[in-house]
């Protein structure tokens, strides 16, 4: 699997145009098709989850197309993937919503992706779930340690049509959290949850290696 480099090129588009999941600002940006694989079952941190999913497939989504863009203030990422049977919300006790996330090493340089970071080298992720208004900003210091935190500069918009999700994450270039200013070159990874397949928590498709995001 080759590592892709995503270029976040400068655009004159304003925030609203960038946030529009099918906005024209995205037409000009090249996309990278990122291959996704199921997360390893033996890394699931509960014996119950391992037993319950032993004979059951997860990681239904095989690829996500990713684009990046920036304007003077904001960095945005658009994730698109095929979802013939979208789950747009948690609408029952046994229903799970579609979701996606992008993940960075908190130090901007490196960490262990397979364990979702470590106590010394945490990861930061932006997590969107269908049916919710705001994305979560999360940090993790190992599998099962995800903590949601408020990051007010983070926004997300989503759209489902023609069997495809389009999700845009947008965050201020300058923030108290992760540094994403111009000239930043940072590892990035991706994950998608297929709600129709009851995927949640560590049961998901993910990019098993970091790719690279270059913010021009």
């Amino acid at each position: 699997m080759t590592n892709a480099t995503l270029d976040a090129r400068h655009s004159p588009a304003n925030l609203e145009d960038i946030l529009a999941p099918d906005g024209s600002a995205w037409n000009e940006m090249t996309g990278e098709v990122i291959a996704l694989t199921p997360t390893p079952l033996d890394r699931q941190p509960s014996a119950y989850v391992q037993a319950a999913w032993k004979d059951r497939n997860h990681g239904a989504v095989a690829a996500v197309t990713v684009q990046a863009i920036r304007n003077d203030d904001t960095l945005a990422l658009r994730l698109q993937w095929q979802a013939a049977q979208p789950k747009r919300s948690i609408d029952d006790i046994n229903a799970y919503a579609d979701a996606c996330a992008v993940l960075f090493p908190a130090n901007g340089k490196d960490t262990d992706l397979e364990t979702m970071g470590s106590p010394e080298r945490p990861v930061v992720a932006w997590h969107w779930r269908a049916g919710t208004d705001a994305p979560f900003s999360v940090t993790a210091r190992g599998i099962g340690t995800v903590e949601r935190s408020a990051e007010h500069q983070l926004q997300a918009r989503s759209r489902w049509s023609d069997g495809r999700w389009q999700v845009v994450f947008a965050r201020s270039l300058e923030s108290d959290g992760l540094s994403l200013s111009g000239g930043t070159d940072i590892p990035i990874a991706f994950a998608v949850w297929c709600g129709a397949g009851s995927e949640r928590a560590g049961l998901k498709s993910h990019s098993p290696e970091f790719h690279q995001l270059r913010i021009n």
């Binding site: 699931q44 941190p45 509960s46 014996a47 119950y48 989850v49 319950a52 948690i90 006790i93 046994n94 599998i143 099962g144 340690t145 995800v146 949601r148 949640r200 928590a201 560590g202």
Partner: peptide, 29 residues
């Protein structure tokens, strides 16, 4: 034991088992 993120705990004083609602992410395992 099923929770992948240690949301459920046993109280030390009496063994009552509780779900930490702040920590729960609703995975339902």
């Amino acid at each position: 034991e099923a929770c992948p993120r240690d949301t459920i705990y046993r109280r030390d004083e009496d063994g009552v088992i509780l779900i930490d609602e702040e920590r729960c992410h609703g995975y339902r395992f």
